[in-house]
């Protein structure tokens, strides 16, 4: 079965997470082919890991004041501020192509496509276990994976720009002193495409480079298609009934 590529543009946090889960369900049932998706977030959003506590990690008042969405992911890992970035998801059967069975190896298998895409943009990055991509010792991409119903769902971000001050204003920290430390540390440890290339990168150009990077590293050619109407309506319903609800987001 051919693998499709969806480019869904910038959507809300709840819709983005609902699309990933809808596609996961449909890949599991055989209704959808293996799927890669490239997307962004509008409004900007903070996502938290499945095991995190929203009230403990996120300053909800500041987020609301600034029009920043919040959502719990179905994947583990930490809190992420999604603003100037390209996000991808890879939703494929556990036995798809040459994907390794082992979780650490499968992270790398998918991440090599991003490394390839970054190379095309002029950045020599490398996979750094368990789930990061780094360039010159600084992280440029974070990734998270879940496996359900025989399907691997991996999603992750590629930073176009990074604003540690803003990020740590939206996240809850124990003290102002800690906040300053975390901002300083993020500036030393995290980078972005704009910083690496000393220019302002365009979302669509990064999307194209990543799509080609995946094709090259996975040795396949995507069917460039769109979500079906059925998928979109299922995702809208899931967004409303799950990802936009207090029950889900405040679960822990």
């Amino acid at each position: 079965m051919r693998t499709r590529l969806l480019q869904t543009g910038h959507l809300s946090a709840a819709t983005n997470m609902a699309i990933d889960e809808t596609v996961l369900r449909r890949v599991a049932s055989g209704e959808a082919p293996p799927t890669f998706r490239l997307y962004g977030w509008k409004p900007p959003a903070v996502s938290i890991g499945y095991f995190q506590s929203l009230v403990e990690e996120v300053d909800l008042e500041v987020c609301e004041d600034r029009g920043v969405d919040v959502v719990r992911r179905i994947t583990g890992g930490g809190a992420v501020f999604h603003d100037a970035e390209v996000t991808y998801s890879a939703i494929v059967p556990q036995n798809w192509e040459a994907i390794p069975e082992s979780i650490p190896e499968s992270y790398q298998f998918i991440c090599e496509g991003i490394v390839e895409g970054l190379k095309d943009l002029g950045i020599r990055a490398h996979f750094q276990g368990l789930n990061d991509i780094a360039v010159g010792g600084k992280k440029i991409s974070g990734n998270a994976q879940t496996r359900r119903k025989g399907v691997v769902l991996q999603h992750g971000t590629i930073l176009i720009d990074v604003d540690p001050e803003k990020m740590f204003t939206l996240l809850r920290v124990p003290s102002e002193k800690t906040r300053k430390k975390l901002i300083k540390s993020a500036k030393e440890r995290v980078t972005s495409l704009n910083e690496m290339l000393s220019k302002s990168m365009d979302f669509e150009d990064v999307v194209s480079a990543l799509a080609e990077g995946f094709e090259k590293s996975l040795r396949l050619e995507f069917d460039r298609t769109q979500l079906t109407e059925e998928e979109m309506s299922e995702a809208d319903e899931l967004a409303e009934k799950k990802y936009a609800t207090r029950d889900w987001n405040f679960m822990r």
Binding site: G49, F51, G76, G77, A79, L130, T146, R147, R148
Partner: peptide, 8 residues
């Protein structure tokens, strides 16, 4: 709670 991963 935390930023770890657990499967399942």
């Amino acid at each position: 709670t935390g930023d770890f991963f657990a499967h399942p």
